[in-house]
Design a protein around this nucleic acid. Structure first.
Length: 339
DNA sequence: CATCGATGTTGAG
DNA sequence: TCAACCTCGATGG
């Protein structure tokens, strides 16, 4: 489910509450009993994310690699850092009127400048609003605060592949695509196969690697952005939004995208990822007034330029948003704004 | 309450 | 190219 920003947020949760602590590892579900036994009772020494992969280091030798895939999630309970946005449900405010679907066609919003409102909300999310021992926080693509627990650690709910437990924090993993204990060399091999991540690679090196990789390929840019060996962490939503923000037709072959525009794509991805990690949600529309920003925080449908908007009018020009199935994934774009 | 679809990747054919 | 993986919110009856 998650794109890159969520995985970095989850790694940060582990860095804050688990690194430096002795960890009891188990597999309530049983499927990961052997792997859990390898790391049980050891100290977590590092927690990092590269693209959509997360790596947790135990005792300096073994690493737990986790990839959440389509519907994996971590449930944190006990001492947990909760962001302001985690308390905003996607569906708790009725948006019967005043939605922005019919706001198209007027002045063109600023599609790329930084937004002071985003900065303000990000500021909120930096401060944990209490992280007492009873908190429950679900971290997947979205973060959602659940009912407080009454006993610590709580009974595992559902199929928990692995539970990581300290004296005050508990993390339950469910539904991952990958969960394995590997060596440092194997971690390096995984990372070597991944394209640059703006939060891992230096800005210069990341931009150079991305630009070179894109400009040597005839593959459509819309496909390249989803290729984790070209660039790490971009998923179906960020792809659609980045291409719209760049005014770029997803079908354009990589080598035909002007070099300046390729570089701008990288810088914009950096911007969106940093914002996503800070706010705890994908915020791909800039230049919103405060009300529109609040609405976007709460309602998924008010949050994107083109993603999930097939057949709806483009927010800028009013043209119906197009949708096409590419490699089994839905690609959305505006046929007029993106050329 | 049943069914569908999803922010992803892998591996079989 | 497509099913499998295995979860859950959204949707419809």
């Amino acid at each position: 489910m998650p794109e890159g920003h969520s995985v970095h947020r989850i790694a940060r949760q582990f860095a804050e509450h688990f690194v430096g602590h002795t960890v009891r590892a188990s597999s309530p579900q049983g499927r990961f009993a052997a792997g859990a036994a390898k790391i049980d009772g050891r100290v977590m020494t590092d927690a990092r994310a590269v693209g959509k992969h997360m790596f947790l280091e135990f005792g300096g030798g073994d690493w737990l690699r986790v990839h959440l895939g389509m519907y994996g999630a971590w449930d944190f309970t006990g001492d947990v850092t909760v962001s302001a946005t985690a308390t905003l449900a996607d569906d708790d405010a009725e948006g019967a009127e005043g939605r922005s679907d019919d706001d198209s066609g007027d002045g063109s919003p600023d599609r790329s400048a930084g937004s002071p409102i985003i900065d303000a909300a990000a500021e909120d999310s930096l401060h944990s609003i209490g992280a007492p021992r009873r908190t429950r926080l679900r971290m997947a693509e979205r973060e959602k605060q659940g009912e407080d627990i009454d006993v610590f650690p709580p009974e595992p709910i559902g199929q928990v592949r692995v539970r990581l437990l300290t004296e005050s924090s508990c993390a339950d993993l469910r539904g991952p695509t990958a969960c394995e204990v590997i060596t440092a060399d194997e971690v390096a091999a995984v990372i070597a196969r991944l394209g640059p991540d703006p939060l891992v690679d230096s800005p210069e090196e990341g931009e150079e690697r991305f630009t070179a990789a894109v400009r040597r390929r005839a593959t459509p840019i819309g496909v390249l952005l989803m290729d984790q060996s070209i660039v790490s962490g971009i998923g179906n939503i960020y792809r659609a939004e980045l291409l719209f923000r760049a005014g770029l037709d997803p079908h354009t072959p990589g080598k035909q995208v002007p070099e300046d525009l390729v570089r701008e794509l990288w810088r914009d991805w950096t911007r969106l990822l940093v914002d996503g990690v800070r706010v705890g949600q994908m915020m791909t529309m800039d230049g919103l007034d405060e009300e529109a920003y609040r609405r976007a925080l709460v309602h998924r449908d008010d949050r994107h330029w083109v993603y999930h908007r097939a057949g709806l009018p483009c927010r800028v020009c009013g043209t119906n948003i197009a949708m096409e199935l590419v490699a089994g994934r839905k690609l959305y774009w505006c046929p007029v704004c993106q050329t």
